[in-house]
Simulated assay, not measured.
Amino acid sequence: MTSPTPHMFLQPDGWMPARGYANGMMAQGRIVVTGGLIGWNARQEWDHLDMLGQFRQTLINIVAVLDQAGARPDHLVRLTWYITDKQEYLANQRGFGTAYREVIGRHFPAMAVVQVTALMEDAARIEIEATAVIPD
Rank of each mutant, 00 (worst) to 15 (best):
T84Q: 05
I60P: 01
M51E: 11
G53M: 04
L59M: 14
M51I: 14
L52K: 06
R43Q: 13
Q54T: 05
Y82C: 13
E45M: 14
W46V: 10
R43H: 14
L52Y: 01
L79Q: 00
H48M: 05
D50R: 07
Y82L: 14
L79R: 04
T34H: 05
A64D: 15
I83C: 03
L49S: 13
G39R: 03
V65C: 05
L79P: 01
L66T: 07
T34G: 06
G39L: 07
H48G: 05
W40Q: 12
A64H: 03
I38K: 02
V63S: 08
T34A: 13
R43G: 07
T84F: 09
D67W: 12
I38N: 01
L76K: 02
I83Y: 04
L59R: 00
G35I: 09
I60L: 11
G70Q: 03
W46A: 12
A71N: 04
D74W: 14
Q57C: 06
H48D: 14
G70A: 06
W81Q: 08
D50C: 10
A71L: 01
D85R: 06
L59E: 02
T80H: 09
R72H: 13
L49D: 11
V77W: 07
T80A: 09
E45Y: 03
T80F: 02
D47T: 15
I83D: 04
N61H: 08
L52I: 11
A71P: 07
D47N: 15
G36I: 13
L52E: 09
G70D: 09
L76H: 09
R72L: 14
T84K: 03
D67F: 12
T58W: 12
A42C: 02
D50N: 13
V65A: 05
D74I: 12
D47F: 11
W46F: 10
R72C: 09
N61Q: 13
A71R: 04
H75S: 06
R72V: 11
G53D: 08
L37I: 10
G36A: 15
R56S: 11
G53S: 07
Q44E: 14
D85M: 03
I60F: 01
A64I: 03
F55M: 02
H48N: 13
W81P: 00
R78K: 11
L66H: 01
P73C: 12
D47R: 13
N61K: 09
L49E: 08
T80Y: 01
T80S: 08
W81I: 05
Q44F: 15
L79T: 00
V77N: 02
I62G: 04
T58E: 11
V77D: 04
I38Y: 06
R43P: 01
W81S: 02
V77P: 00
H48R: 07
T80D: 13
Y82M: 15
W81F: 15
L66M: 05
I60N: 10
T84H: 10
I62K: 00
Q57G: 05
N41R: 10
I38P: 00
H75N: 11
R78S: 11
G36M: 14
L76C: 06
L79F: 06
L37S: 03
R56P: 11
